[in-house]
């Protein structure tokens, strides 16, 4: 029993230490943020790398999730004879939950792993050390643009995911099952509130900060070996997914 308790305390302390290191890392990013904003070009490049390069997977998944929502929603709503509310139902679920959460999970898998692997490999091949020797701060030159690129790209990806998802739901509900197109869109317009859109965007920004921070932190601090880089990418996906879902609960509770 003592051993179990000791293990628990030890892993809790290790967890606290990791959180502390992550916070210190984030604070350092915050301190150098103003100077990085003076050089927007690397940030724009990273918005392209993390955002534009994730578009295909985001749009494909958005389309299919929208279509599934359309199908399930139609099946459920016809039981109550209120299939004209299909537009509202899909819009609210996409805006408030599925859009930001699924985008964040996909972002962690596509862009987060790419960021972590790239930074880990730069560490393993001495590129980070070379920058330090050249008196160039790698946090400023490499880490911050990648972090900001992710933070900017995420709400944009969330928006695109939601729009494509709505199109998918419309495709199934209106074109396939014959829900009246007018009521699909007008019900949506009259019942979706600004608060729903705000909730989606706030979640997008928060998940963007969390997932990008985890990816650059894990990559930058990866052990400089093949195994270390592999572990960093795995950790990026796992931690991002868990943190996203926990944050989602907290944000939902706060904004309801």
């Amino acid at each position: 029993m003592n051993a179990i308790l000791r293990d628990f305390v030890q892993s809790f302390l290790a967890f606290l230490e990791r959180v502390g290191l992550l916070v210190r890392f984030a604070l350092r990013l915050a301190v150098i943020l103003p100077s990085a904003l003076m050089r927007p070009r690397p940030i724009i490049e990273q918005v392209y790398n993390t955002g534009a390069m994730s578009l295909v997977i985001i749009m494909t998944c958005g389309l299919f999730i929208g279509m599934v929502l359309g199908m399930q929603g139609y099946d459920l709503l016809t039981r109550f004879g209120s299939e004209e509310y299909l537009g509202t139902a899909t819009a609210v679920s996409l805006l408030r939950e599925l859009g930001p959460v699924v985008t964040a999970l996909l972002f962690a898998g596509r862009a987060g792993t790419a960021l972590a692997a790239e930074l880990g490999l730069m560490r393993a091949t001495d590129q980070i050390a070379a920058m330090e020797i050249m008196a160039v701060d790698p946090m400023r030159r490499v880490v911050l643009p990648r972090f900001l690129g992710g933070v900017i790209a995420m709400p944009l990806l969330v928006s695109i995911f939601i729009v494509v998802g709505l199109f998918g739901a419309q495709l199934v509900g209106v074109e396939l099952f014959g829900v009246d197109s007018g009521s699909f869109w007008s019900q949506m317009r009259s019942s979706v509130e600004l608060g729903d859109i705000r909730e989606g965007l706030v979640k997008g920004v928060v998940f963007g900060v969390a997932c990008s921070l985890i990816a650059v932190y894990e990559g930058y601090n990866a052990m400089p070996t093949a195994e270390g880089v592999g572990r960093a990418t795995t950790r990026t996906v796992v931690i991002s997914a868990v943190v996203t879902l926990i944050l989602d609960y907290i944000l939902t509770a706060l904004m309801l």
Binding site: M122, T125, D126, Q127, A130, I133, A135, D137
Partner: peptide
């Protein structure tokens, strides 16, 4: 230290070029 390093150059074992 960064000011001092500007006066130094270093050749790494594997080159460490930015890929």
């Amino acid at each position: 230290i960064y000011a001092l390093r500007r006066r130094m150059g270093m050749l790494f074992q594997n080159g460490a070029l930015l890929t």
